[in-house]
């Protein structure tokens, strides 16, 4: 699946990064809690969120995430989008809910990230 496929599936609007729509995507993580994004996302993945503030972009930058999907019709401010653009990210916005966004993408083959729990760390 590519970012363009996600745009089509979600009838999403591309807010920045139009030149990177053919980039393949392999996994996704959905959360409005950036704390959890920082704790659980360890690989390049798509971030799906309904939270709109500069920390979404900063969190994504720390993790090298390159694609953000804002759901429930959320659109970040021009300043936030400018930051995302400077960092080489593609940002899209869909009117679908987080549940429907995830469902559509999962149904089409996009996987969630695997979480390693501390107990499992100790056992290995």
């Amino acid at each position: 699946m590519t970012i363009q496929d996600m745009v089509d599936l979600l009838r999403a609007k591309v807010l920045c990064g139009e030149d990177k729509l053919e980039t393949p995507v392999f996994s996704a993580f959905c959360s409005d809690l950036m704390s959890d994004v920082l704790a659980f996302v360890s690989d390049r993945t798509v971030l799906i969120t309904g939270l709109v503030n500069p920390h979404v972009i900063r969190t994504a930058d720390m993790l090298d995430l390159k694609c953000i999907v804002f759901c429930r019709g959320k659109v970040p401010t021009a300043a936030i989008l400018e930051d995302a653009k400077d960092l080489g990210m593609t940002v899209i916005s869909t009117r679908e809910t987080a549940f429907t966004t995830c469902g559509r993408l999962y149904e089409t083959g996009l996987k969630g990230v695997s979480i390693t729990w501390p107990q499992e760390d100790k056992q290995t």
Binding site: D32, L33, M34, S35, D36, L38, A39, L51, N53, H55
Partner: peptide, 12 residues
């Protein structure tokens, strides 16, 4: 409200 304070910081 900014998406932080979930108690994940120090362990992370």
């Amino acid at each position: 409200s900014l998406g932080f304070g979930a108690g994940m910081g120090l362990p992370n």
